[in-house]
C-alpha cells in the first residue's frame, strides 16, 4: 500500500482507493479537443440563432472545424483503448450484434453515444460549409481542385442546402438547440466521467463537469477569436468583440467554479494544486489560463489584435493545462508522465 494512499484513507474514511486507470496523453488531448469541438458547435448554434450577417464567418469557421476535430477525438479515444479494434463494443453489444448498448448511468457509455450523435451533427454542418460559396472558408481551394468534390458540391450539396434553408424556422431552431445541446454535452460529459470514478480527487469533484463544459466553451471562444483575427478581422470587429465578451463571462465562471470545486474538495484536492503539478496548476491553469485573460483590460497585453490574440492563446494554453493537471496529477507518481 502506498503510504500516501494509506494516509488519505486514514483521514478520509470514505475515500476509495481506485487504481490509476492510466489515462494519459490521448485522454488529455481528447478532453481538450472534445471540449473545443463541443464548444465550437454550441457557439455556432448560438451565433447562428441570434447573431447577424457579420457573424456568419465565425459560424462557418466553427462548422468547418467541429467535424475534423471530433474525428481526431474519435481516433484518440480508439487508440487509447487497450483493444482499439473493439471500440465499437461501446456502442453495440459484442455478443448480441447488432443490438445497441447504452447505459445512461455510466458517463462513459453515455459519452460514446454523445460523441456519435455529435459527430453526425457536426458532419451535417461540415457538409453545409462545403455548400458555402468558395472562398468563404479556409481550405476551399480543395473544392475546386478535386473535380469529384466540385461536382458533388454543385449537384448535391448546394441544392440540398437551398432546400434545407426553406424549411420552417422551428425546424432550424430545433436543430440549433440540438447542436448546442450536443456540443455542451460533449464538452461537459468528460468532466462528469472524471467524477464518476473512485479515484481520490476525482470522485468528490462534482463540479468537474461544469468546469470542463465552461473550459470547452472558453477555449472555443478563444480559438474562434484567434482564427478571425488571422483572417483579417480586427480587435474592434463586432464578432470578435461579441466573442470576447462572452469569453470573459465563460472564463469568469470557470474561475469561480474552479475555486468552488477546490474548496469543496479540501484536502482531497491536494494532488491538483500541490506537489508535482502545483506549479503547472497555479502558473499555467490559473495564472495564464484564467487570471491573465480576465485581467486583460488592466494588463498591457499589447495593442489591438495583439491583446486579443495573446489573451486567446492564454486561454487555450490554460485549457489544455487544465486537462493535464486534472487527468495526470491524481495518477502521479504511480503512472509516469510519459506513459501513454
Amino acid at each position: 500500500m502506498h503510504p500516501a494512499l494509506l494516509q488519505i484513507l486514514a483521514a478520509n474514511p470514505q475515500s476509495g482507493v481506485a487504481l490509476p486507470p492510466r489515462w494519459g496523453w490521448y485522454v488529455i488531448l481528447y478532453f481538450f479537443l472534445g471540449g473545443l469541438a463541443g464548444g465550437l458547435l454550441a457557439i455556432a448554434a448560438a451565433l447562428d440563432a441570434v447573431g447577424d450577417d457579420r457573424d456568419r464567418e465565425a459560424v462557418r469557421l466553427a462548422h468547418r472545424l467541429a467535424f475534423p476535430l471530433v474525428l481526431v477525438c474519435g481516433a484518440l479515444l480508439t487508440i487509447d483503448l487497450g483493444q482499439p479494434l473493439r471500440f465499437w463494443h461501446m456502442l453495440i453489444k459484442s455478443n448480441r450484434f447488432p443490438e445497441p448498448l447504452l447505459k445512461p448511468w455510466s458517463p462513459i457509455s453515455l459519452g460514446s453515444w454523445i460523441v456519435m450523435v455529435f459527430a453526425i451533427i457536426a458532419f451535417v454542418e461540415f457538409l453545409g460549409t462545403l455548400a458555402d460559396a468558395p472562398g468563404d472558408n479556409a481550405g476551399d481551394d480543395v473544392l475546386t481542385k478535386w473535380a469529384w468534390l466540385a461536382k458533388f458540391r454543385r449537384d448535391t450539396l448546394v441544392p440540398a442546402r437551398e432546400r434545407v434553408r426553406s424549411w420552417p424556422s422551428a425546424v432550424h431552431r430545433t436543430w440549433q438547440a440540438l447542436a448546442a445541446l450536443a456540443g455542451l454535452a460533449l464538452a461537459g460529459y468528460t468532466g462528469v466521467l472524471v467524477t464518476g470514478t473512485s479515484r481520490v480527487a476525482w470522485h468528490n469533484a462534482r463540479l468537474m463537469g461544469a468546469l470542463f463544459l465552461l473550459s470547452g466553451a472558453s477555449t472555443a471562444y478563444a480559438l474562434l477569436m484567434l482564427l478571425l483575427v488571422r483572417r483579417g478581422r480586427g480587435a474592434a470587429d463586432t464578432t470578435v468583440r461579441k466573442l470576447g465578451a462572452a469569453d470573459q463571462w465563460a472564463v469568469g465562471f470557470e474561475l469561480l467554479v474552479l475555486a468552488l470545486m477546490l474548496i469543496s474538495l479540501g484536502a482531497l484536492g491536494r494532488p491538483f494544486w500541490s506537489g508535482g503539478f502545483g506549479v503547472v496548476f497555479w502558473l499555467g491553469v490559473v495564472g495564464i489560463g484564467l487570471i491573465i485573460p480576465l485581467a486583460r483590460h488592466w494588463i498591457a497585453l499589447g495593442p489591438g489584435e495583439h491583446g486579443v490574440t495573446r489573451a486567446a492563446r492564454c486561454v487555450l494554453i490554460g485549457g489544455f493545462l487544465l486537462r493535464v493537471v486534472i487527468v495526470m496529477s491524481p495518477q502521479y507518481p504511480a503512472v509516469p508522465l510519459w506513459h501513454l
Binding site: 474514511p13 461537459g188 462528469v192 464518476g196 473512485s198 470522485h203 462534482r206 468546469l211 463571462w249 465562471f253
Partner: peptide, 29 residues
C-alpha cells in the same frame, strides 16, 4: 475504505451542475 461509494454516486449531481453551468453559459453567451 471505510465507507466506499460507487463511482456513480456523484454523477447525477455532476450532470445537474453541468446543466447549471450550461445555462449560465447560454444566457451570458
Amino acid at each position: 475504505p471505510e465507507k466506499p461509494e460507487l463511482g456513480s454516486k456523484n454523477v447525477d449531481e455532476g450532470f445537474a451542475l453541468s446543466g447549471v453551468a450550461a445555462a449560465a453559459l447560454a444566457v451570458t453567451g
